[in-house]
């Protein structure tokens, strides 16, 4: 299958800080990707490089098989909705939609109109005077209605309440189902978006620490709770990514899956098994990555081995 994005050894630093460190990525068409990671992990920098809004120090970026820099052919097929998208001062949402309609050849005015109603967006008010949530709604509407072959949403939900966010997710699934395209969704609210993603990329301190299908990540780790020594015996030989101790109890998260026999054994030992959500897994992984930075013994625990 032809890839939409190919990134080879991409590095970028700002003065003293490394924003991206030898990133290698390859994105396939018509999938919804989650780009997850903490603040400052490099998500926005990565998306800026992919949309030719910043220059890497080294490495190679190919979008639709071409170098995106000053490449109108490529850029006209990309829509990038930034967390704090800027619009000209005099613009109203209506103006913004009109410009988007000129730029994006797949623009669907009817969809835009429906979304305006859904979000109850005042389209004639100047964007300067909109609330933070309404400003985010403008971005979300442009991102969806542009139907660009490659759409980036960088934390698109700032100021949107839970109802409006759900509306965004619902419309995204609906419209993507009808018009499949490549979507990269960067988010902190991992639990909210986890089920929408087909593929998950986790970035931490400029490095990709996870790049896997959402379905194979689901169930790729589990937590065992029980008396510390029994938990220890039960998990012997397994890769541990997190341990919590409380009195004589331990709650330990390990990589891998359990067979039915092992589950029965755990139950016989009086151990409780709990699933690990994508959000928990990402938190665990980014924490253990931080631990590795602090000079803890360098293990391969950052990578999911399977």
């Amino acid at each position: 299958m032809k890839t939409v994005i190919e990134v080879r050894n991409l590095s970028k630093s700002y003065r003293n800080s490394v924003a991206l460190d030898s990133v290698i990525l390859s994105l396939e068409p018509d999938r919804i990707y989650g780009l997850l990671g903490r603040n400052g992990a490099g998500k926005t920098t990565l998306m800026s490089m992919l949309t030719a809004q910043g220059f890497p120090n080294s490495g190679e970026v190919k979008v639709f098989g071409e170098d995106p820099y000053e490449n109108e052919q490529v850029l006209s097929r990309i829509c990038f909705i930034r967390e704090s998208q800027k619009y000209p001062d005099s613009f109203s949402a209506k103006h913004a939609f009109r410009s988007a309609a000129l730029f994006f050849k797949n623009w669907d005015q009817e969809l835009a109109g429906r979304l305006v109603e859904d979000f109850q967006l005042p389209v004639k008010r100047t964007i300067k005077k909109l609330s933070r949530g309404q400003l985010s709604a403008v971005g979300v509407i442009i991102g969806l209605a542009s139907r660009a072959e490659l759409t980036f949403f960088d934390e698109p939900y700032l100021g949107l309440d839970a109802v409006a966010r759900q509306l965004f997710y619902d419309r995204l699934v609906e419209d993507y189902g009808r018009y499949p395209r490549t979507i990269v969704l960067s988010s902190h609210l991992i639990d909210e978006v986890a089920n929408l993603l087909e593929h998950v990329i986790v970035i931490d301190k400029g490095r990709i620490i996870m790049d896997d299908d959402a379905e194979s990540i689901r169930g790729s780790a589990f937590t065992v709770v029980g008396s510390a020594d029994k938990v220890g015996t039960f998990l012997q030989g397994r890769e541990i990514i997190h341990t919590d101790n409380f009195a004589s109890l331990a709650s330990v998260t390990a990589v891998g899956t359990l067979s039915r026999a092992e589950k029965t054994e755990a139950a016989e030992l009086g151990l409780e098994l709990a699933p690990v959500s994508l959000q928990q897994l990402v938190v665990r992984k980014t924490i253990s990555a931080a631990g590795a930075d602090l000079g803890a013994s360098k293990t391969s625990s950052l990578e999911v081995t399977r």
């Binding site: 999938r31 919804i32 699934v173 609906e174 189902g177 087909e198 959402a214 379905e215």
Partner: peptide, 18 residues
């Protein structure tokens, strides 16, 4: 349809199709 499943359960359509 798989899209209907996806919308109803709020999951990725490719996952529903699978």
């Amino acid at each position: 349809s798989t899209n209907a499943f996806a919308s109803f359960y709020r999951i990725n359509p490719a996952t529903a199709a699978k």
